[in-house]
Structures are given as C-alpha cells and as structure tokens.
Design a protein around this nucleic acid. Structure first.
Lengths: 248, 248
DNA sequence: ACGATCAATTTTGTATCCAATGTCTGGAAT
DNA sequence: ATTCCAGACATTGGATACAAAATTGATCGT
C-alpha cells in the first residue's frame, strides 16, 4: 500500500526513513497491536529492499514498539493501560529529577528566556478563553518544547533518552488529544507558570514537586480518557508535525 | 583475531551472538572508546558476513554503546565520569521508585523469601571476616539478584528496562570491582538487610530512601575509584558469567 | 473420525554483489 | 610554501540471491 514519501526523513539513509515511517504508522495505529510484520510484504509496500527494513525493525524492537522472536519475525507490541500508567510513573519521576537538578544548578538566562517564551506563547493561545482546534498543534509544540528544555537543562542525558522512550508508547504519545476540558488545560498551563518560577528561584524541591504532580495528573487524565473509550481505542493522529525523534 | 565461539549465545541466530560478543568486548574494554568499527574487518574477524554484523551494530547503537553517523560508520562510544554520575543518578532514582512501589503493594511471600535468601547468602560469604576473591562472582550474582528481584517486584517494566540500560555503561558496569574495602561492603550489605526489612514492613518511604542512598553511595565510590585511577582506565572483567541481558 | 506424520510452501536469516558516498593523496596554481 | 581542487581508493548502504527453519496443509494410519 502506502509508498514511502520521496524525501522522507531527510536523514539520507533509507533505513532511518523506513524506521520513522514504521514508527509513525505504529503510533498512528495503522498497524494494530499484535499484527505480524511480514518482511517481504512490508519491504515491497515501502518500496525498499528487505535489508534496510530489517535494520529498521531491529531498531524498533530495541525501542520496544515491536516484539521479536527468532525465526518467527516481528509483531507490533500490544500495550495495555498498565503499561501506560507505568510509563507515566517513570516519566513523572524522571522529569521531576530533571527539574530538581535544573533548578539546583540554575538555568542559563537563555534557557530561562526560552521557557518564558513558551509560557507567553501558551498564554496567547489560551487567552481566547477557549482552545481553538487550529491552535492545538501549536500548543502541543509549545508543551513539548517546554518539557524538553527543562530536561535538557537538567543535564542528564539518560533522563532525556528515557523520557523520550516513554513518549513512544502508542497510547501515551503526545499526539493524543486529551485537552478537551478547558479547565484542565488552564490548570496545566498554570503548572508551567509555577514551574518556571520555581526554576527561576532555584527552588529544586518545589520545582520537582510541581513537575511530578503535573506529569502524574496528565497521566491520570489520559488513562481515564482511554479507559472511558474502551481498551481497543487507538489514538487519533492530530497534526502533521513529526515528533522530534531524539530529545536534545 | 578472536573467532566467534561455536555455539555462542545459544540464541540460535548469529546476529544475536554477534551482538552479545560485541557488547561483551566493548564492556570488557577490548575495543577502546572512540575506536572505529570497520564492518568488513569485524565481520571477517568474527567469522560472519556483514549482514548480521550490521544488524548487531544497529542494535548496539540503539543501546547507546556505539555511535553512528550515516556513511561514516560505527564507533565505540566514549563515556566520561559525568556519564557515569548521571547513570547512577537515574539508577538511584528509578530503583528507589521500584522499592517504594514494591513496598506499597506488598511483596508476595516467594519474593520476600528470595530476598531473604540473598541476604543469607551474603551473610555466609561475608561471615569469614573478609571477602575472598573466589567468592566475588558469587557475591556479585547475589547482589544483582537482590536488586533485580526488587525491581521486578516493583511491577514497572520500564524501570527494569531502563535500569538495565544504565548497567550497560562500560565504566558503570557491575563487573567492575570496587569492593576492596571490607567496611564498604559490610555497610552495603547492611543496607540490603534494612531494605529487606522495610519491604517486609511495607514501609515504602523508608525502603525508597534506603535504596536511593545505597545506589547513590555505590556510584560515588565507583566514581572516586575511577577518578583515582585516571580517566582512561578500562574496567577489568571479573567473572565468566554473562550479564542477564533483559531484566525481567 | 481423529490423530499423527510428512511434505510443500511460506518466511526468516545469511552471504554475495553492486552502487553511492566519504576520505585521502597528489598535483597544480596562487 | 601553502592552499585548493581533482581523481583514485576505501568504506558504507542497499539489493538480490540462496539456504535453513517454521508453519500449514494434506495424507495416511489407527
């Protein structure tokens, strides 16, 4: 079916393009959980040979998006609500850690300015009193940037990598809309504001606590949302923006 | 140079065997940090084709043990002391989390018995008043089992995986000997004893605190050890046991 | 009729081969 | 003498072809 877009990824190597395309499709839900990935068929569908496909599959297997059994091939991994809960637990813990460390070392002015800009951007979007659907991609970008900037400021590369991995869980992906209730999103944005202040004050304890609560609550809401819709619901894709792959 | 042992890995597929062999050699220090890994030469040395080697290299790259640049190949990643410090920081945080959760849910009797057995084994080894070098592999196995059992009891698969990853950092690997001072090891074992008690008492706060301190201190000692010997020191390999790969 | 065994087909894993890209060396021009 | 460019070499990335393993189906036996 769907061919591989011509200049996909732009990473130069087609292995990366294939990996990105597959990641996309899995996160998007095109490949349902448990689906076996036939190498020959997939390679033909993507317009490449089996060699890069195989490498890409190995990469996704390491990412935990697909499972692998020798001589039995690859299959899309199925995630359940417990996996999502666990992912958010780890994420809350690690982001809180990053927050604490960032606050303790003190953020460079440039980083503070970046965070402040994020908050301002969010204010502009939310100021309308309602979150316009067309603003949603922008808001999500801002949100991701805010979190990534803090993680980067935390200075622990492992945190960045592991948090990035938890974002690759299909159901827990950032691309899921859960911001329908304006009250929730307002509170979330207020969290950002307070986190920024705690960081500026170099109050590690407070910053960590706020971030932990912030992420934990987001997870709770997401889990409730998924549970309400039924287990087999697949997240809808929203924007056309690609995830930034490796967190800086 | 060194051929691939005949039935290596036993995983059936030679890709896994190659991956394990390379991982081993990198952690062992045979391939110094920064060394470029020529595919053709390596494949010939290991007695396999370039195809499985490339797959294995891709896997190691996702593991973070080697770096990769398109059209420029793979190279052994260089870790510095900051990486080790960061790894232990994450590990302490995550293992503390696992400890808290394990204590809160309450461990099944079987798990408690396993942990108690570990403590008893340690007592037997340490009872001699000195750590016999011949007992060291046993002690290390016990230590690994103790930590892994708790992580498993924590019930968060992500924690298990991420902690396992931090163990793949060459300098921070478990295989490094740092238990030369008997006082240190005695204290470490006492930590185990107290952690077990806190778990049995379902005191999550205490268990987490103990574990955090336990791991953090181990990291400090290791870092000091490495720093004292100079940056370019490569960890010596100790036993002949393979790391258990994926943590349960 | 049900089960087991065997064979054929499908699918994965590996090796070899070709193309594309990066690097290095040598020379020429400034 | 130094720097820049060009061509050859080496190394990586991808594709095709081949072998081994597994799953499926059918057939034979009980």
């Amino acid at each position: 079916m769907s061919e591989l877009p011509p200049g996909t990824g732009g990473h130069g190597t087609s292995t990366q393009a294939v990996a990105d395309a597959l990641r996309e499709r899995i996160l998007e839900g095109t490949f349902p959980p448990g689906a076996v990935l036939r190498q020959d068929a997939l390679a033909q569908a993507l317009g490449v040979s089996r060699t890069p496909l195989r490498t890409a599959l190995a990469e996704l297997a390491r990412d935990g998006l697909v499972t692998y059994e020798v001589n039995r091939g690859y299959a899309v991994r199925a995630f359940d609500l417990d996996d999502v809960r666990a992912a958010f637990e780890v994420r809350a813990t690690l982001e809180a850690l990053a927050c604490r460390r960032a606050a303790e070392r003190g953020l460079p002015p440039a980083a503070l300015a970046r965070l402040a800009a994020c908050v301002t951007r969010g204010e502009a979007i939310l100021g309308k009193g309602r979150l316009d659907p067309s603003d949603l991609p922008d808001y999500r970008r801002m949100n991701v940037e805010f979190h990534e900037a803090i993680i980067a400021a935390g200075g622990n590369p492992w945190v960045a990598e592991f948090v990035g991995r938890t974002r690759n869980v299909p159901l827990a992906s950032d691309r899921v809309i859960l911001w329908e209730d304006h009250g929730i999103i307002l509170r979330s944005h207020d969290d950002h504001r307070r986190i920024l202040r705690a960081l500026a004050d170099r109050d590690g304890h407070r910053a960590a606590g706020l971030m932990w609560e912030h992420v934990t609550r987001a997870g709770e809401i997401l889990v409730a949302h998924i549970a309400a819709r039924g287990q087999d619901v697949v997240p809808r894709r929203v924007g056309a923006d690609a995830t930034k792959g490796d967190a800086a």
